[in-house]
Design a protein around this nucleic acid. Structure first.
Lengths: 133, 133
DNA sequence: ATTTGACCTGGAGTGCACTCCAGGTCGTAC
DNA sequence: GTACGACCTGGAGTGCACTCCAGGTCAAAT
């Protein structure tokens, strides 16, 4: 199967402009073209796009994704380096999850504080106010 | 206690420039000044900065932090709205954690794939290659 | 035959969150 | 008394990841 740029955008969740942008910056091999010169994305293109969007979701900078994409073009010899990039990214994702978890705890604490204030509704003792919230 | 801007930067993990920037955009009440006109941050300022940096870590845009900061200046009457902002942010953090968890799974899968390739070390059957990794 | 709509290109513009700079003022150390 | 380092101001510059635009081509629909 092959897909128009609009269809590829729909399926990948990226915008049409972003697809062309990714191609320009070499994240994406230039896809095939139809007889009229329009881009025709293959299933393989879409799979790769899907993976790229996952990497983006992890917060990987485009610079690194470009490195990965470039390694991929260099075939099997680059597999070790590619794996290393993924392992490193895995770590950074795990770290980020832990960080967010910490933030969640703080938010919960603050929210509980506000609930505390609400419960004391009218006769407020405003010592909670302005201290650090 | 009061702290020079350099000390406040050290303690908050923000840069000196960022502290001044936060003040300009009204994330931060202008701190007191010493006799020479230099900023003198209070412990309360530092607490607030600490909370701000947590909010930043959650990915909250500065626009929203400004709203929260502005509400805070309007005192106890704004507590409901402030709480609502934190509850909303809590949700977005939880969502983001789930999203990252999904990405982690994908990374693990890919990494396992590379390990699979490594194990087949020399006599490679490269059907793994270029399909979607 | 012309209108429409999806697509094309190269290049400029955007929003965000800082970050840097020039030129100046202070208070202490030599 | 001057050299130094930390600080001040207003404003310009940066890097990132898109996003938008003008002007053009092409195939199918009216």
């Amino acid at each position: 199967m092959s897909y128009s740029i609009a269809e590829a955008a729909r399926r990948s969740g990226l915008s049409i402009d972003t697809l062309r942008y990714y191609e320009r910056i070499k994240l994406l091999e230039p896809p095939a073209r139809d007889s009229a010169g329009r881009r025709a994305y293959s299933d393989e293109d879409l799979n790769w796009l899907g993976f790229l969007t996952k990497l983006r979701l992890t917060g990987m900078p485009i610079k690194s994704m470009r490195e990965y994409a470039s390694l991929r073009r260099h075939g099997v010899a680059s597999a070790g380096r590619r794996k290393a990039i993924l392992v490193e990214q895995r770590q950074s994702v795990a770290d980020r999850i832990a960080e967010l978890q910490g933030c969640l705890d703080i938010l919960d604490y603050k929210i509980a504080n506000y609930e505390h204030i609400e419960r004391k509704a009218l006769g407020v003792a405003p010592e909670m106010e302005g201290i650090s919230a």
